[in-house]
């Protein structure tokens, strides 16, 4: 199993623990990867507000690089996944548009034929590795750990570009992963809602209400942690949890928000440090203590 690896700006910037934990887990699983160091940012849907075509061109450029390598792309971010899936969807159903974009890429010796697939680590674990194989690498059952899923908008909408029909497991991928590690899903309506990150700098009051509502509701329902495949959601739900909980609910930040590879790493028996859990704004200590009290297998 080998991928053209596209970690995304945030895993290489504001959430370095995502990058570290993803590499650790991929190594344990024997997943090979070549990092796409020349690829540009996806535009995250923000650049697209100013110039949609520019966004599509940047993404098609990345697809062409992976195509030349003959590898599917792996991402670590719901937003990267969604924006790339949408760009791929635009050009795959419109050959004329693709030809127009390819003209711009010719100067770099690139041409996209339309064969690259883009897969989040979360989907790859389920669709390519398989949950049964994955479970064999676990050294600890996370029994009794209550985990609230939080997808990030771009991992769940729009379902046509994300190819949910052809891949029905995507709709419940996060819940399935939580159950595979032996955890209990803390289900709540906010799991597919917006985390508020896109309007953090535009309407902070609304953004804070979203963070406080989601983390507070999940905590009230008994969650030990929230798990997200999106580092942008993480930045808001973790980084702004202290401020928002105080401002909106008058209580304290008490819900760790962990990344998908950190959840897997805990089940693989990796240390707090190897997974970068000490780098979170909301303390993960209580959750780690609870996990480490669980018995190791065999």
């Amino acid at each position: 199993m080998k991928y053209a690896f596209y970690p995304g700006c945030v895993a290489r910037g504001g959430a370095p623990e995502l990058y570290e934990s993803a590499l650790a887990v991929m190594e344990r699983l024997g997943i090979e990867h070549v990092e796409l160091t020349k690829a540009a940012c996806t535009g995250a849907g923000v650049l697209q507000e100013k110039n949609l075509k520019m966004g599509d061109i940047l993404n098609v450029r990345t697809f062409a690089m992976a195509e030349q390598m003959g590898l599917p792309i792996m991402v670590l971010c719901s937003t990267c996944q969604g924006v790339m899936s949408q760009a791929n969807h635009h050009v795959k159903r419109d050959p004329k548009y693709l030809a127009e974009i390819n003209k711009h890429l010719a100067a770099e010796g690139l041409e996209y034929k339309g064969t690259t697939s883009v897969k989040h680590l979360l989907w790859a674990l389920i669709e390519d590795v398989g949950l049964d194989t994955l479970k064999e690498t676990f050294t600890r059952e996370l029994t009794g750990m209550n985990m609230a899923p939080f997808y990030g908008c771009y991992m769940v909408r729009p379902t046509d570009a994300l190819e949910f029909n052809a891949n029905p497991t995507r709709e419940t991928s996060l819940e399935d992963l939580i159950e595979s590690v032996g955890g209990t899903v803390t289900d709540f309506a906010g799991k597919t809602a917006c985390c508020g990150f896109p309007i953090l700098f535009i309407n902070q009051a609304n953004s804070m209400k979203m963070v406080a509502n989601h983390t507070g509701t999940a905590k009230d329902l008994g969650a030990d942690a929230m798990v997200t495949p999106c580092p942008l959601c993480h930045l808001n739900l973790d980084g702004y949890q202290p401020k928002s909980r105080k401002q909106v609910r008058g209580d304290k930040a008490d819900l760790p928000v962990i990344h998908v590879p950190q959840l897997i790493g805990l089940a693989m028996g990796m240390s707090e440090k190897a997974l970068g859990l000490q780098k979170h704004i909301v303390s993960t200590k209580e959750m780690v203590r609870k996990v480490e009290a669980l018995p190791m297998k065999g």
């Binding site: 908008c153 917006c194 896109p198 309007i199 535009i202 609304n206």
Partner: peptide, 11 residues
């Protein structure tokens, strides 16, 4: 500018 681009409405 207050829209979060969550795509729920599209969905």
């Amino acid at each position: 500018w207050d829209c979060t681009r969550c795509m729920k409405c599209v969905d």
